[in-house]
Structures are given as structure tokens and as C-alpha cells.
């Protein structure tokens, strides 16, 4: 890494040494990938969606490949916030990077209780998932209504002093309205986009493939939608954005940054290349050098100028 190039960003009050993090649900709790890369080289680590109580998740099949993408319907399988706080987060301290915990709940109060438990933990930030398409209650139900998304944001903010990032759903008529609404409710940042609601049918069994019938589409197939969404929201709000949706390489990450993202998250690409995050960090640095920039912050929202 070159000392004359600054890759560091400040995203919603979190100091990241580079703008690259992981998309919740695609990177477990980080440890699963510790054999493949040095986790401490990441700008931040966003861990699996965490709920108040443990969740079993959806029946299989939970994943199916689609053209340049995947549909998933995991259903927020997780060990519950107590295990995350007492056992998992303490283990992640060794990597000395900001850990962002993604949280979900059935009711706004659930979100508040989880936030409260995380407040005194090793977590550096809370990412509020109001956009999971794969659970019956909560999730996208909150994210598709600006008032409900704001309500969840307020409850979380009231229960923690940690920075709060709200993860937005693209499955709405107007993402800008939801973004503005959570901004007014006190959100410190935005993460976007979550997966797009989709479906696949097996023509031989004549049934939906996924155990949960519908699932969330991610991967390169959704990238243009995600870039557009970041572009629109960057124009209309002042909150820092963690951009994601189909990022597989540095060029993809740079598109998001130029659209207005302060940081980027790598998701589905981790499955294909476990070292995608570190490759992207290197690629961003090379781009800066090659194009005569000394600081990645110079490129944030560049495409709007």
C-alpha cells in the first residue's frame, strides 16, 4: 500500500482505512473467510443479520443461480443477539477493524432491544435492515413505507449511541422518499441496495424453486439498478452512503463511489472470489495512482460534477 495515497473514508462517523466492506449475509461473521484473506485489511466488516432471538431460517432450497446473479431466501438464520454480543464480537476484536452489525426484527421494539444490547458491545455501528425480502414479518415491510422506516430508525436511535445506518430496499416506488424519511428520523448513514424481490420456477416440477417461493436477487445482474439508486439518493440527501449491488471488481466499486457512495460493500462476489474485497481495495488504489488522484474522497459523487 502506498503512503502517498489516501484510501481512508469517514462513513457515518466510522473511520474506515479504505472504503471497502462486506455486504451483510454474504460474509457470515467474517471468521468463515479468515483462511482466505487478512480480515484486518478490510475497511469495515458488516456481519450477518442479527435478531433478538435465534432464527432457524427458511426451508431449502435457499439459493438458485440466475443469469449473472443469484436468488436467495435464507430467512435471517442467526444465533441471536446475545451470542453475537457475548461470543462472536469479542472474537472479532483481534482484527482491529470497525464491525457493523446488521439487525432485524418483527416489530420496532425488537429492533430497539437488539440495538440496546449492541450499544455496549464491540460493535462500531448498527446497520438497520428494513429491507429483507425473505421474512414474513418486519424486514421489507418497514422499508417499503417511509413512515414505518422512520419509526424503526427513531426507535433504534433512542436505544443506542452507536452510529445508525439504514439499509434500504429497492422494492419500492421511490427510494428517495424512504431515504429522506429515515434521514429526518436521525439516521447517520444509508446502505443501499438490498436485494430485489424475485422468483424462479422449475418447469419440470412446475413449482417455485426456492423453499420460500420468492427470494432476493443479487449479483452483477442488479448493478445498474443499484448505481442508479445511489445516484438518485446522493442527489437528494446529505447522508453518507454505503453502496452495494453486484460489485465484483474495482471498476464496479468506483462506479458506486462516483455515483455518490462514500464506501462500498461486496456481497455475492465473495462466493465466487473470497478475496474479492482485497482485490477491489488494491484496484481502487491503482485507479487513483493511474489517474492522478491522491485521495479516494476526491471521487465521491464525482459523476455528478
Amino acid at each position: 500500500m502506498r503512503t502517498d495515497i489516501n484510501l481512508g473514508v469517514n462513513c457515518a462517523g466510522i473511520k474506515m482505512k479504505n472504503p471497502v466492506t462486506t455486504a451483510s449475509g454474504t460474509f457470515g461473521f467474517g471468521e468463515e473467510y479468515a483462511h482466505y484473506l487478512d480480515l484486518s485489511s478490510l475497511g469495515a466488516l458488516v456481519v450477518k443479520g442479527t435478531t433478538l432471538h435465534p432464527r432457524k431460517g427458511n426451508p431449502p432450497p435457499r439459493i438458485i443461480e440466475t443469469p449473472c446473479g443469484i436468488l436467495n431466501a435464507i430467512g435471517l438464520q442467526n444465533p441471536g443477539v446475545d451470542i453475537v454480543v457475548d461470543e462472536i464480537l469479542p472474537r472479532l476484536q483481534q482484527f482491529s477493524i470497525p464491525v457493523i452489525v446488521n439487525i432485524s426484527g418483527d416489530t420496532p421494539d425488537d429492533y430497539g432491544l437488539v440495538a440496546k444490547k449492541l450499544d455496549q458491545s464491540y460493535a462500531a455501528c448498527i446497520e438497520v435492515n428494513v429491507s429483507c425480502p425473505n421474512v414474513r414479518k418486519g424486514g421489507m415491510q418497514f422499508g417499503s413505507d417511509p413512515a414505518a422506516a422512520a419509526e424503526v430508525t427513531r426507535v433504534v436511535k433512542a436505544n443506542t449511541n452507536l452510529p445508525v445506518i439504514v439499509k434500504l430496499s429497492p422494492n419500492v416506488t421511490d427510494m428517495v422518499r424512504v431515504a429522506q424519511s429515515v434521514a429526518e428520523a436521525g439516521a447517520d448513514g444509508l446502505a443501499m441496495i438490498n436485494t430485489l424481490l424475485g422468483m424462479k420456477i422449475d418447469i419440470h416440477t412446475m413449482r417455485p424453486v426456492l423453499g420460500n417461493t420468492m427470494g432476493g436477487l443479487s449479483g452483477p445482474a442488479v448493478k445498474p439498478i443499484a448505481v442508479r439508486a445511489v445516484w438518485q439518493v446522493f442527489k437528494e440527501t446529505n447522508l453518507p452512503i454505503i453502496g452495494m449491488g453486484g460489485i465484483t471488481c474495482a471498476d464496479d466499486a468506483l462506479e458506486f463511489i462516483m455515483a455518490g457512495a462514500t464506501a462500498v460493500a461486496v456481497g455475492t462476489a465473495n462466493f465466487i472470489n473470497p478475496r474479492a474485497t482485497v482485490d477491489i481495495i488494491e484496484g481502487i488504489e491503482q485507479f487513483l495512482v493511474k489517474n492522478g488522484y491522491s485521495d479516494v474522497n476526491q471521487l465521491i459523487g464525482k459523476a455528478h460534477q
Binding site: G25, E32, Y33, P60, N72, N270, P274
Partner: peptide, 11 residues
């Protein structure tokens, strides 16, 4: 999906 226990797909 991932093959390493991160994505929790192969339930």
C-alpha cells in the same frame, strides 16, 4: 453458495 459456512444457503 459460498462453500465455507458464510451464506447459510445449503441448509
Amino acid at each position: 453458495g459460498c462453500g465455507v459456512g458464510a451464506c447459510l444457503a445449503c441448509a
